[in-house]
């Protein structure tokens, strides 16, 4: 079946009307709906979009399109627009899009969907979920931060209290606790309590001002390393760190290697907890191209390098060799199962 006939069979009248304006010579269209925060958020959405770009670079026939969500209420309409545009695979980015993706997938059973950060139970035959064991990566970051802190106080805050965000915060706290139990220290983490599931949340994924204010509050409480888990909100925290100096405040990036995505303030990032959405997104596109796509789940872990730690950036020389070695050991321990992240 040719691509065109597939499209018109799928969406009927509307696609036929649109076909003239939308269709180009490309043989494969990969579309992405970003979450609020924008495609250039230097973190979450941008990393997922990089996956499409990588696929475009690797395969000439792939064409990528995206649609930014400006509010949570846009999800349905954005999905609709892309369904009408005749995409071969639609990738939705973000846990909050779970409901919208599900209903779109159910009313369009022939359209391939993939969602970042959401796992359906039971699985939907035309949706492939991409989830990440980010608590493993954040565990390492917590261990590192505990080893680097001078004040013995660390901070973290999130965007919204949802599992993909709190997974980072859980891992971070557990990593610090592990450091404490190994070294007999008492490094504290402000901003998240894994038991009560409560902590600091900005309530949004787009206010840089909030990022600055929350980091300022944590700094005022003594924190000298802060991990913001809220997409572009963290850029505000990085600006603050750049102003008051990295001796006073360092930032741990999330999702992407933020020394690369936020080059202006590259020297404030101690490291970044990588969530390799780009590699799983590329993988999904390739699966859809080869025809091996089926509904289910891809899980990124430390072991398959779906999550991990970026380099130490500007702190390459100040992280002690001993600590580096310990982190490598902890990483190996998580992979072979001898260290349990959730303890």
């Amino acid at each position: 079946m040719t691509f065109l006939s597939k499209i018109s069979a799928r969406t009927g009248l509307a696609a036929a009307l649109l076909a003239g304006s939308v269709m180009t010579a490309s043989a494969f269209t990969a579309c992405q709906v970003t979450d609020v925060g924008g495609i250039d958020d230097a973190s979450f959405n941008q990393t997922a979009w990089k996956g499409v770009q990588d696929a475009m670079a690797a395969h000439d026939e792939v064409e990528g399109r995206f649609l930014e969500s400006q509010a949570e209420t846009d999800y349905d309409s954005n999905l609709n627009s892309l369904i009408q545009a005749g995409c071969d695979v639609i990738i939705t980015v973000g846990f909050l899009m779970g409901d919208a993706t599900k209903s779109a997938a159910e009313s369009n059973p022939d359209q391939k969907f993939s969602i970042v950060d959401f796992a359906y139970d039971p699985t939907i035959p035309n949706v492939l979920g991409q989830v990440y064991a980010t608590d493993q990566g954040a565990f390492l970051a917590g261990y590192l931060a505990a080893g680097m802190s001078e004040t013995g106080v660390l901070g973290t805050f999130g965007g919204i209290n949802i599992p993909p965000v709190t997974a980072f915060m859980d891992g971070f706290v557990h990593g610090v606790n592990y450091y404490n139990s190994e070294k007999g220290t008492d490094v504290q983490v402000l901003g998240w309590n894994p038991e009560s599931r409560e902590g600091l949340f900005t309530g949004n994924f787009d206010s840089l001002d909030d990022g600055r204010a929350f980091a300022q509050n944590l700094y005022d409480e003594g924190a000298d390393i802060v991990m913001p888990v809220a997409g572009p909100v963290g850029l505000g925290s990085a600006t603050l760190a750049a102003e008051i100096g990295t001796d006073e405040l360092k930032i741990i990036g999330v999702d992407a290697d933020q020394t690369q995505t936020d080059p202006e303030n590259a020297d404030v990032y101690l490291t970044s907890v990588l969530k390799r959405m780009d590699s799983t997104v590329t993988q999904v596109i390739e699966m859809a191209m080869e025809g091996s796509f089926e509904g289910g789940l891809i899980v990124g872990t430390l072991e398959n390098e779906g999550v991990g730690l970026a380099g130490y950036g500007a702190f390459e020389d100040s992280v002690p060799d001993e600590l580096r070695a310990e982190i490598e050991a902890v990483k190996a321990g998580i992979i072979d199962g001898s260290i349990e992240v959730g303890m």
Binding site: V22, R65, F66, L67, Q70, S77, S81, A85
Partner: peptide, 12 residues
């Protein structure tokens, strides 16, 4: 505006 972003890649 949504169509504009999908087709022409111009920011919404």
């Amino acid at each position: 505006g949504r169509q504009m972003q999908v087709d022409a890649g111009v920011s919404i």
